[in-house]
């Protein structure tokens, strides 16, 4: 059940990205271009998504466990570390260069445009590079947290 349901939930996600206009890099870039061709739509996407998720999570996370698993897999870290700050800043710069973010670029693949495919390949390469860097950095001094 977990796999077919994940497929259906993925369809809902992809449909949401598509309808909201977030598969379109120009629309994303225009949100940030207040001084130019401003398009405030992205704020409405975040508003709609956050409202539903805030209320939905409240209801769902009150249950003892998810329907198809024994526990909720929630991040437990609460510390603010340099990796969070630097990584998020670098992500923002990359997002601002072309208007693709991970969640927007995957559904954009379905539009069969070369830009989306090039972006996703480069992003996956970046993820692999970052994992290597992190593994190398962590190797000499294993963190015990």
């Amino acid at each position: 059940m977990a796999v077919p349901l994940a497929f259906l939930i993925g369809l809902v996600f992809g449909t949401g990205i598509m309808i909201s206009g977030m598969a379109n890099p120009a629309k994303v870039l225009n949100f940030f271009d207040i001084a130019g061709t401003w398009d405030p739509s992205l704020a409405f996407v975040m508003g709609g998504a956050l409202t539903v998720a805030l209320i939905g999570y409240r209801i769902v996370l009150r249950r003892p466990r998810p329907v198809l698993d024994t526990c909720f897999h929630l991040p437990t870290r609460r510390d603010i570390d340099p990796a969070l700050i630097g990584g998020s800043a670098l992500f923002g710069v990359g997002w601002g260069i072309a208007g693709f973010c991970p969640g927007g670029s995957i559904p954009a693949l379905g539009l069969l445009r070369p830009q989306a495919a090039v972006f996703v390949c480069a992003m996956l390469a970046g993820m692999a590079i970052a994992r290597r860097l992190r593994a190398r950095r962590a190797a000499p001094r294993p963190r015990l947290s």
């Binding site: 994940a6 809902v12 709609g48 198809l68």
Partner: peptide, 21 residues
Amino acid sequence: QSLLGGALIGLSAVLLMAFHG
């Protein structure tokens, strides 16, 4: 459209938490 699409993105997040955790 953006509000509606956003709500669907939020719905997918809630469903993935409810079923898969």
